[in-house]
């Protein structure tokens, strides 16, 4: 009997915090998204009205929402494959029996992951500077004329992508490295004896062996990249010409700059519905391919 009571005192504080500060607000957000909660309601709840799906209709007919959505999808479409390729490349190099000073390289390649995104965004904002930035300077050596990275609507998002890849690739690198080390060595031995080339070994042993890990990493990264916020907040403030306004940035502006908390909740739900759908489709697509193979 006393074990029962002790157990409850052990779990109660944590469950209370999760319930009150996470689950309850998430449920309340659904209700809030059905109201016209704005700065007047913030002053007095008398000004609060139920508007049904009005916020969703408003958001879905606002051109800036579609622009933010297109920007975010563009960011994910560029950053996801580039990140995965960089992480996989780095993991393969670190896993190579020929590599030396592995620990040192691993630490260095992982370092950007633990850095504060705001602080490193400030560095990159400077590296991308049209006149004084090291990136344009380096491009000058191979004869490419200066790019106005953060001032040109075509280049601002690719610049954020480069920054995000640098900042994040180490995380997936570590997970993929663990995945590589779990592939049985005798498979490679057997293939080598059969005379399979390096490329064929990679294609027929490494990639299939990594499949579940790659899928996991892709889903985690995808969900993370859809939540793009700090990078545009620090580096571009959504500019130039709103080309780097992300969905979450729009939610932040709507909610905490203009205090339209109802609309902000609607934007948040739309974003997470989208993430859910995209990850589901990705998983189903992969499983469907598995069955046909």
């Amino acid at each position: 009997m006393s074990t029962q009571r002790a157990a409850w005192t052990f779990v109660a504080p944590a469950l209370f915090v999760l319930g009150v500060f996470l689950v309850l607000p998430a449920c309340a957000a659904l209700l809030l998204s059905l109201t016209d909660f704005d700065i007047y309601a913030l002053a007095s709840s008398d000004n609060l009205r139920f508007v049904g799906l009005g916020n969703y209709r408003d958001v879905l007919t606002t051109p800036l929402f579609w622009k933010a959505l297109a920007n975010t999808v563009w960011f994910v479409a560029l950053a996801l494959p580039l990140s995965l390729a960089t992480s996989l490349g780095a993991a393969l190099l670190l896993n190579s029996p020929l590599a030396r000073f592995k620990g040192l390289h691993r630490t260095a390649l992982f370092a950007p992951v633990v850095t504060t995104v705001v602080a490193v965004a400030i560095i990159w904002r400077y590296l991308f500077h049209t006149r004084y930035g090291l990136i344009n300077h380096a491009l000058g050596f191979i004869g490419i004329s200066p790019v106005d990275w953060l001032g040109d609507p075509h280049w601002a998002m690719p610049a954020l992508v480069l920054f995000a890849v640098w900042k994040n690739f180490g995380y997936n690198m570590i997970i993929l490295l663990a995945g590589l080390q779990a592939i049985p060595q005798d498979l490679y031995e057997a293939a080598r004896i059969d005379g399979a080339s390096r490329w064929r070994r990679f294609w027929h042993i490494t990639l299939p062996g990594l499949r579940p890990v790659l899928l996991l990493v892709a889903v985690i990264t995808l969900a993370g990249y859809f939540q793009l916020f700090a990078e545009p907040y620090v580096m571009t403030r959504g500019d130039p010409l709103q080309s780097t306004v992300s969905v979450l940035y729009l939610m932040y502006e709507e909610g905490f700059r203009w205090w339209n908390l109802g609309r902000a909740c609607a934007i948040a739900f739309l974003l997470f519905a989208l993430i859910l759908v995209v990850t589901r489709v990705l998983l189903r697509f992969v499983r469907a391919r598995d069955e046909t193979v």
Partner: peptide
């Protein structure tokens, strides 16, 4: 059952909860 709820809480996106959490 409680642990199932904790696992479900893993999936709750923080950003969705932010607006009501601010009011709280």
């Amino acid at each position: 059952r409680l642990f199932q709820i904790v696992l479900a809480a893993l999936l709750v996106p923080l950003q969705v909860a932010m607006m009501p959490l601010f009011l709280l």
